[in-house]
Amino acid sequence: MTSREQRRGSGIPPVLLIPAGLALAFLLLPLVGLLVRTPWADLGTHLTQPAVLEALRLSLVTGVIATAVCLVLGVPLAWVMARAEFPGLRLLRALITLPLVLPPVVGGVALLLLLGRRGLIGQHLDDWFGISLPFTTTAVVIAQAFVAMPFLVIAVEGALRGADRRYEDAAATLGAGRWLTFRRVTLPLVAPGISAGAVLCFARALGEFGATITFAGNFPGVTRTMPLAVYLTLETDPEAAIVLSLVLLLVSVAVLVSLRGRWVSGASS
């Protein structure tokens, strides 16, 4: 049916090709700009500046801790949402995914109102334990976990829903209690979903800006993560900002590649 093939080939209205090309250029050219302006010769010098190293280290540490927090709290939450049946489950799911679409700065304000020195919980933490969370590294982790947890919960919940529950029946007939079954059967079965969720979660935590600057502030070495450092050094030391941006871009590409691999292997198993 060559005539149909030809008709289909010529079926794309040229008028659509122009905006499509523009969109592609719009998405890729800024990255090209970043690469072109990168001071490749001085890359090593810029990367080893104390301020850059400090931000890099802080971002990695907080990102890893935030991801760990999301895993410890988010996997059980995903399990409850995938397995429990109760009224209001849909509403709960909507509320849990709210941080995904909420402007991060609003999240930061909300965290401040809850955990700040005059906040709902924060005032008691201050009165009873002398703990003040805002403007500490802990606050950075809290802000990152708040915005990143939904990514993990959604990925793991999807994996749990897709997993064959009869494996858990099989484990039960072999004498495994619920906790053992969860650890030895359910978790390994959804491992691809958990790692995909953790990678997404880490990427989101690494890029966190709005909630962090609102709730944790901007103190070098304490709360100034890479995105904050990029924003601030752009005024004073543009080349350092570009180098930091390049690092973040590389991390993003690495995340994308690793996710692709996981999704492919997850689909085949």
Binding site: D164, R166, Y167, D169, A170, A171, A172, T173, L174, G175, A176, G177, R184, V185, P188, L189, A191, S269
Partner: peptide, 28 residues
């Protein structure tokens, strides 16, 4: 089920895909 001492062979076997044959048998 886990306290019954009733064994079951399922229709599509449901061998745990992440464990070797040996570890599947050792699981119980």
């Amino acid at each position: 089920a886990e306290q019954r001492h009733v064994g079951m062979v399922f229709q599509d076997y449901l061998l745990f895909p992440h464990l070797s044959a040996l570890d599947n048998v050792a699981f119980g």
